[in-house]
């Protein structure tokens, strides 16, 4: 554990909590891609199956359980409790275009051809693209509420801090997880355009992030 990894995990947690509280307090999931949230729930589910097979630390177990609970609670708010506010028309990204290649790639490029490893690899690849339905929705509607933008900012910070974590671990331990690093770089690149918009529009601007 190093400071980059810890702050990355905390940013990830803050992002998930921001989104959950935004929906809970406003009783609305307007502007939120339910598809991205289902993909994230699927990411956590397929990655954290090792909860049943290997114990790493209390921190590791607690964080995994919290991420899972929050992910499923958020999906529950969007598709059940506040489903009337769900904008399915704008959430029109075709997730099969992500799921099929990601599933195929996880069978081809993994560390070991075992069910748990393939599912872990699937979760890593899927996480790198799971935000695309949300970014697509923002592009389609042309704007995002600032709170949604804060959510995306923390999610992007989490990725960027994990890159720093991997550089640090490579430097200090010689640790190098190729699948996670390559996917993590791809994932972070998706946020770069958003980071630019966030700093030029949300921080200077009027509460909403409009796209050009």
């Amino acid at each position: 554990m190093n400071i980059f990894r810890l702050s990355g995990d905390v940013c990830h947690l803050i992002a998930i909590i921001i989104l959950f509280l935004k929906i809970w307090r406003s009783k609305s999931c307007a502007g939120i891609s339910g598809k991205s949230q289902v993909l994230f729930a699927l990411v956590f589910t397929t990655r954290y199956l090792d909860l049943f097979t290997s114990y790493i630390s209390a921190y590791n177990t607690v964080m995994k359980v919290v991420y899972l609970l929050l992910a499923y609670s958020t999906v529950g708010l969007i598709f059940f409790r506040f489903r009337n506010s769900y904008d399915s028309e704008s959430d029109s990204f075709r997730v099969e275009f992500l799921l099929v290649p990601v599933a195929g790639l996880s069978f081809l490029e993994n560390y070991a051809f075992t069910p748990l490893e393939i599912l872990w690899t699937f979760s890593i690849y899927l996480e790198s693209v799971a935000i695309l339905p949300q970014l697509f929705m923002i592009t389609k509607t042309g704007e995002a509420e600032s709170i949604t933008a804060h959510y995306l900012l923390f999610l992007g910070l989490y990725r960027a801090l994990y890159l720093a974590n991997w550089l640090w671990r490579f430097h200090t331990e010689g640790f190098y997880d190729q699948i996670a690093v390559v996917s993590g770089v791809v994932q972070t690149i998706f946020y770069c355009d958003f980071f630019y918009l966030y700093f030029t529009r949300v921080l200077r601007g009027s509460g909403k992030m409009s796209l050009p």
Binding site: R5, Y111, A112, E117, N165
Partner: peptide, 10 residues
């Protein structure tokens, strides 16, 4: 071979 024995990251 398997490079990563245990996935300790979240």
């Amino acid at each position: 071979g398997t490079l990563i024995e245990v996935h300790d990251e979240l």
